[in-house]
Simulated scan of single mutants.
Amino acid sequence: MIVLDCDDLFETWRQQARWLLSHQIDPDQVSWSVKEDADLFASDDHYPPHNGPFQARVPLELLALLQNAAQYCGDQRWSLLYEVLWRVSHGDRTAMLAGDKLGSEVHRRLKQVSREAHHLHAFLRFIALPPCNVGKDLEVKAALLETQKLPEYVAWHEPAHDILHSASQHFVGRMGKHRWMIATPKDGVFYDGERLIHKRQCPAAWQSLARNADDPHGELWLTYYSHIFNRARLNPKVMQGHLPTRFWKNLPEGPLIPALISEARTGKQRDGQARQIAERRGKVIRSGH
């Protein structure tokens, strides 16, 4: 068994896969793992570091398919891609199709990646930072020395797949020339008004800034959200399908949602009115003379 470590980088995996194909190494003989697991496997075969005689030809659409599917985090993340590449390079293009057993798994992963990118666009909340507060944080300044600029907006997000780098391009045109930063438990991005910088290991200073940012308009937003929450039309299963519970903890309105759902279940779904509104005194309307 040949064990490889691509460091979860598609370009590194692509070079390794090209080398494997050139030596006609079957997918059953290859595994991608982390370095500390490498001693669990061994190979009796010795292959030269340079490419072998076999030259594989694959369609360009396959490379795009594999690159998008590579953002999926899960079991057999890289081995599955090599198995698809192996079959297509040997003339079996059905491995790219959703009707094929292997292709079906690839397309399932593509859907998961696309859905996770949608979640980033829909549920990420930027918080505006007062310049004076950021400027006092020397640790943040040190972490941003590469740009010599500080963010105006920050956000914290916890994606299930490696979609941050590609999906965050969505905000480049929408935020104009404003500087913003998104931090995650794994990686981070910073847009300095001109270019998007991606850090595969999110600096601790970025994470601290994004997680501890105080939204100056938070109370106003919570008041607004609690009043527009429609208890009369609440369907918890549908709601959780569109807004998974794993995102609630990182949304400003997240702490309100369980209580609002509870209110709906205990009667508010029947009358459809928030308690604060129902208790207000009505106005007397007098007819004119």
Rank of each mutant, 00 (worst) to 15 (best):
residue 2 I to F: 15
residue 3 V to N: 08
residue 6 C to N: 05
residue 7 D to A: 13
residue 7 D to P: 00
residue 10 F to N: 03
residue 16 Q to P: 06
residue 21 L to Y: 04
residue 23 H to L: 12
residue 26 D to V: 04
residue 27 P to K: 00
residue 29 Q to H: 11
residue 30 V to S: 14
residue 31 S to M: 02
residue 32 W to T: 05
residue 32 W to S: 01
residue 36 E to C: 00
residue 46 H to L: 09
residue 46 H to G: 04
residue 53 P to S: 11
residue 55 Q to W: 09
residue 55 Q to P: 02
residue 57 R to Y: 10
residue 58 V to I: 15
residue 59 P to R: 03
residue 59 P to C: 08
residue 60 L to A: 11
residue 62 L to I: 03
residue 63 L to M: 11
residue 63 L to K: 06
residue 65 L to F: 08
residue 66 L to E: 00
residue 68 N to W: 01
residue 70 A to M: 02
residue 76 Q to L: 00
residue 76 Q to E: 02
residue 77 R to C: 02
residue 82 Y to S: 01
residue 85 L to H: 05
residue 85 L to M: 08
residue 88 V to S: 09
residue 92 D to L: 10
residue 103 G to C: 10
residue 103 G to E: 11
residue 104 S to A: 13
residue 107 H to N: 05
residue 117 A to S: 05
residue 122 A to W: 13
residue 127 I to K: 12
residue 127 I to F: 14
residue 128 A to Q: 14
residue 129 L to V: 15
residue 129 L to Q: 15
residue 132 C to H: 07
residue 132 C to T: 11
residue 137 D to H: 06
residue 140 V to E: 14
residue 143 A to D: 09
residue 145 L to V: 07
residue 146 E to R: 04
residue 153 Y to A: 11
residue 153 Y to H: 15
residue 158 E to D: 12
residue 160 A to P: 06
residue 160 A to E: 14
residue 161 H to Y: 09
residue 162 D to Y: 02
residue 163 I to S: 00
residue 167 A to V: 09
residue 167 A to W: 07
residue 168 S to A: 06
residue 171 F to W: 15
residue 174 R to Y: 15
residue 181 M to R: 01
residue 184 T to F: 11
residue 189 V to D: 07
residue 190 F to Q: 02
residue 190 F to M: 01
residue 195 R to N: 09
residue 198 H to K: 05
residue 198 H to Y: 15
residue 204 A to R: 06
residue 205 A to C: 06
residue 205 A to L: 03
residue 205 A to N: 04
residue 210 A to G: 01
residue 217 H to T: 10
residue 227 H to M: 13
residue 230 N to D: 15
residue 231 R to G: 10
residue 232 A to D: 15
residue 238 V to K: 04
residue 241 G to W: 06
residue 243 L to Q: 06
residue 244 P to A: 08
residue 249 K to Y: 10
residue 253 E to K: 03
residue 256 L to G: 07
residue 262 S to F: 14
residue 263 E to G: 13
residue 272 G to T: 06
residue 274 A to Y: 05
residue 277 I to A: 12
residue 279 E to C: 08
residue 280 R to E: 13
residue 281 R to W: 07
residue 283 K to F: 14
residue 288 G to N: 12
residue 289 H to Q: 13
